[in-house]
Design a binder for these strands. Structure first.
Length: 871
RNA sequence: GCGAGAGUGGCGGAACGGUAGACGCAGCCGACUCAAAAUCGGCCGACGCAAGUCAUGGGGGUUCGAAUCCCCCCUCUCGCACCA
């Protein structure tokens, strides 16, 4: 709890130091710096301006600020900008629900959040700030799109969207709840629309291969991206239909299938089509039951998670396909709700014995299960499949010319045979799909093309950019306001001059966030980027953000950077040299007896441990610790925390609590502990400054044992904290800082030679070690310890004296049979014979090995001795 | 459903394959105080008088030695392409 008159008054100090940094321009960077300092570009994922900053932001920007301030202290020229991911659905929802214009809502939110971020004392170059909803930004994005179009990286084609038939609107996946539109409650349908795609699949091999070079990315993010890109080797083959099926575009005689398991072709028992497959549509055209089934599948929406978790269902079309290797054999053709049109060819062959999904489907519909891969050690005559498919290695059985081959060899043999018969060929396939960027919404960057009846799709000429969103739009009817606007879309064709229509779709907001990091290098440039600036600053040296962006945002940004490279905007292929992904901020949740969620500020913890509602005194149920969310009301307002405890306290608690890649739990007790530490450090600085005033100027000739020990602790702490900051283990850095502060306090209890000097040295080091984490407090400590010596924000990171940091003795653990029996103190690097002798001489050890035969003596220098006794 | 991670005292966590529990929070005891708060000092995994034994989600394995490496399982988290 904040005392009435604390020793360190953060309420006065924090604004004062923020003003001082601002006045001295401490955090400004140049687009193309002239001095020779090495560059370091620190970037946190920029926020969506939702209205207020939340603890996730505080955590993200604290982590980034520690890196930025630390690197500055290490002599780097640091670029640390901030902006706003300002387009998106919530602004439009606010417009529909409250009648406020998206632009006003967004800019008001930005103003509020900027003020909150500034109170955190972040070392940001605010002169580079921009919002993606400004024409000065998105106009350049339109230029990039036109360049990509010119480079062949853009395509227009049809794809499926979620359609709300009542609201007459395309729905985002998150707006589809249990198959119904969130606002209308109407059953959602899938609809085909012509849309713009960026051809990210063109870069699939490059995006996959380059993952190996991203050594400063978390392994798990690289793994997730590799799996997402999903390279697979298999075969594409055609199954001839027994009878061609008439269809609108002419009869369909065969179905193409992509498979990674051509070795299991002899185990095939059915063929399954996606509900959107052309053959499924052809069957549905003449078969009302099929049409009903397809329609039902289409009501599931487009989300893959929903499709794959739904019960596996199918419809037997009555059609049959011929087996490619077995002329006499045919298999039924089903339409199945779990087959995805977007992957492969939209049709699969089912081998239930060796694929779990196929097996579940076969069991549900009584289809054959034919094992063709025999696991090692099994007998072919009795081996059967129960409820689990077998996808391990083995030898082929009941597979004609493949019999006896191992599965791998069988794949190659099956592909060779398909090619010989002209039925198919080996193929490398990618799970990654092209990036659909069209959105039927107002609050986004307009796609800069014009549709002309005569000329087709015509790009907006560059001199006509930016295509600016109209401001006079109405949200009182469903659908896209750009579509309804009386004049905006009506323009002459740039090519022939005839009446034409603007594209009314806007870009996916992922496009906005796919190049902002490049724009930050030269935010005022007349082109998307100034070449000299991006060449200097890119790539981002350290990117920091939530793990939830591990795939989409980071993959799109990687693709965009390559596309910008291909179109000559910059030289690098990869945007982020180092990546750190932080965990979420969580909090206990509270519920009243009647089920209402309560805010942490609504509750009270009684001395007896009971938790009650502040207003009524009624008992409160303490729920799980969960990610902070408005719906559960388990949120803590950063602004309130900063007002009550100060920015440094909030920053310190966030860093001290746990490793930053893990979820952290926000607790009141934790914040209070952090607050007490800020006060304690400041009091310690005052006490040391007072006691050692006369010691400040001359180094003592001699140091007592205690003074020397403190000096050693100080210099070891420099090494430990440096290494902890470098490895993002800030919680360990905090622990080491606590230890040094404890050591300074303890040293104060003796009065040996040089103690005061050593304490002063320690406090000077502490000031600079805490500066990246608690920058305001560090400045204040310095005014006490070394008045008039300038801003800590401009000072160099402390250097450890290697002589003082070196260990004088090491403690070696002595084990007998792997169990600890004693520890011994030895000089580092002591000869093995001495160590073993000392170890064996320990009474506890001697007792354990007396009368036993020692068959092995393990000695790991400076760490451990282990005596192994004969059994 | 598929893909990727995580799990250590009452709590957050520390620990190059080498003394499990650093540091902090909470708690307990003491000092200061008329008293409380703040502050300062001490104790603090479980069982045991002790020697010691047990203990890193559960079960197996590798090793002189496993929180750490391997296999199986459980629970939780993130992602699944129109939330950002």
């Amino acid at each position: 709890m904040a005392e009435d008159r604390p020793a360190y008054d953060f309420r006065r100090a924090e604004p004062r130091w923020q003003a001082a940094w601002e006045a001295e321009g401490c955090f400004r960077a140049d687009d193309t710096p002239a001095d020779g300092r090495p560059k370091y570009y620190v970037l946190e994922m920029f926020p969506y301006p939702s209205g207020k900053i939340h603890m996730g932001h505080v955590r993200n920007y604290t982590l980034g600020d520690v890196v930025a301030r630390y690197k500055r202290a290490r002599g780097f020229d640091v670029l640390h900008p901030m902006g706003w991911d300002a387009f998106g659905l919530p602004a439009e929802n606010a417009a529909r629900e409250r009648g406020v214009h998206p632009a006003k809502w967004t800019y008001d939110n930005i103003a509020a959040m900027r003020a909150e971020l500034k109170r955190m004392g972040l070392s940001i170059d605010w002169e580079r700030e921009f919002a993606t909803c400004q024409p000065e930004y998105y106009g350049h994005q339109q230029k990039l799109f036109l360049d990509f179009l010119g480079a062949g990286l853009v395509e227009r084609r049809e794809s499926w969207v979620n359609w709300d038939p009542v609201d007459g609107t395309v729905l985002a996946n998150e707006q589809v709840i249990d198959g119904r539109g969130w606002r209308s409650g109407a059953l959602v349908e899938k609809r085909k629309l012509a849309q713009w795609f960026l051809r990210i699949t063109e870069y699939a091999p490059a995006l996959l291969d380059a993952l190996d070079g991203l050594e400063r990315w978390p392994e798990r993010v690289r793994t997730m991206q590799a799996k997402w890109i999903g390279r697979s080797e298999g075969a594409r083959l055609a199954f001839a239909l027994e009878m061609p099926e008439p269809a609108a575009d002419g009869p369909i005689a065969a179905v193409e299938v992509y498979t990674t398991r051509p070795d299991t072709l002899f185990g095939m028992s059915f063929l399954a089509l996606a509900p959107e497959h052309p053959l499924a549509a052809a069957v549905a055209a003449r078969d009302t039951a099929a049409a009903a089934f397809v329609a039902e599948c289409q009501r599931m929406g487009t989300s893959e998670a929903v499709i794959e978790t739904a019960e596996k269902r199918g419809y037997d079309t009555g059609l049959r396909v011929r087996h490619p290797f077995d002329a006499g054999r045919t298999c039924p053709v089903w339409i199945a709700n779990f087959v995805l049109m977007e992957y492969g060819t939209g049709a699969i062959f089912g081998c239930p014995a060796h694929d779990q999904r196929d097996l579940d489907f076969a069991r549900a519909y009584g289809l054959d299960v034919l094992p063709v891969v025999l696991p090692p050690g099994e007998d072919a005559d009795v081996f059967t499949i129960g409820s689990e498919a077998y996808d391990g290695p083995g030898a082929m059985i009941r597979s004609g010319f493949l019999d006896g081959l191992a599965a791998d060899a069988a794949k190659a043999a099956a592909i060779a045979e398909l090619e010989r018969r002209g039925l198919g060929q080996g193929e490398i396939n990618w799970r990654l799909r092209d990036w659909g960027v069209s959105r039927q919404r107002y609050w986004g960057c307009p796609i800069p093309v014009i549709h002309c009846d005569a000329c087709g799709v015509v790009p907006v000429p560059e001199q006509a950019l930016p295509v600016v969103l109209p401001e006079d739009v109405r949200f009182d009817q469903p659908g896209n306001p750009l579509e309804h606007h009386p004049t905006w879309k009506h323009v002459p064709c740039p090519r022939c001059g005839a009446a034409a229509r603007r594209e009314t779709d806007t870009f996916d907001t992922f496009v906005d966030s796919s190049w902002y990091f490049a724009r930050f290098c030269s935010p005022a440039a007349a082109a998307p980027v100034a070449r000299a600036a991006v060449d200097h600053w890119m790539p981002v040296d350290q990117y920091i953000g939530g793990i939830e962006h591990a795939i989409l945002h980071l993959l799109y940004a990687r693709f965009f950077t390559r596309a910008m490279q291909a179109s000559g905007h910059l030289a690098v292929a990869e945007p982020f040299d180092g990546l750190f992904t932080q965990g979420m901020v969580t909090h206990e949740s509270y519920r009243a007896a009647d089920g209402r969620w309560l805010y942490p500020t609504d509750i009270e913890v009684r001395p007896d441990g009971r938790v009650t509602e502040r207003s009524s005194g009624a008992e409160v149920v303490v729920g799980r610790v969960e990610a902070m969310s408005k719906s559960r009301r388990n949120t803590v307002d950063p602004d309130a925390i900063i007002s009550r405890y100060g920015a440094d306290t909030a920053r310190w608690f966030i860093l001290a609590d746990n490793p930053p890649e893990r979820d952290m739990q926000w607790t009141e007790a934790g914040v209070q502990g952090a607050y007490r530490f800020t006060q304690r450090l400041y009091r310690l600085a005052e006490a040391v400054a007072e006691q050692s005033a006369e010691a400040a100027n001359h180094v003592p000739g001699a140091f007592s044992a205690g003074a020397l020990a403190l000096r050693q602790k100080t210099h070891r702490t420099i090494l430990a904290v440096t290494s902890a900051v470098e490895t993002f283990t800030f919680n360990v850095a905090v622990a080491r800082i606590h230890e040094l502060a404890n050591a300074v306090s303890e040293a104060g209890r003796e009065s040996g030679a040089g103690v005061a000097w050593a304490q002063r040295e320690a406090m000077g080091v502490l000031t600079r070690l805490v500066a990246p984490m608690m920058p305001h407090l560090a400045e204040q400590m310095q005014t006490v310890l070394a008045p008039g010596s300038g801003l800590v924000a401009r000072q160099h990171w402390p250097l450890a004296d290697p002589e003082l940091a070196r260990a004088v003795t090491v403690r070696i653990a002595v084990q007998v049979m792997g169990k600890l029996r004693a520890t011994i103190e030895m000089p580092p690097g002591a000869p093995e014979a001495d160590v073993l002798a000392a170890a064996a001489a320990e009474p506890n050890v001697a007792r354990q090995i007396a009368g036993q035969r020692v068959i092995k003596r393990v000695h790991v220098p400076d760490r451990i001795v282990n005596f192994v006794i004969a059994p």
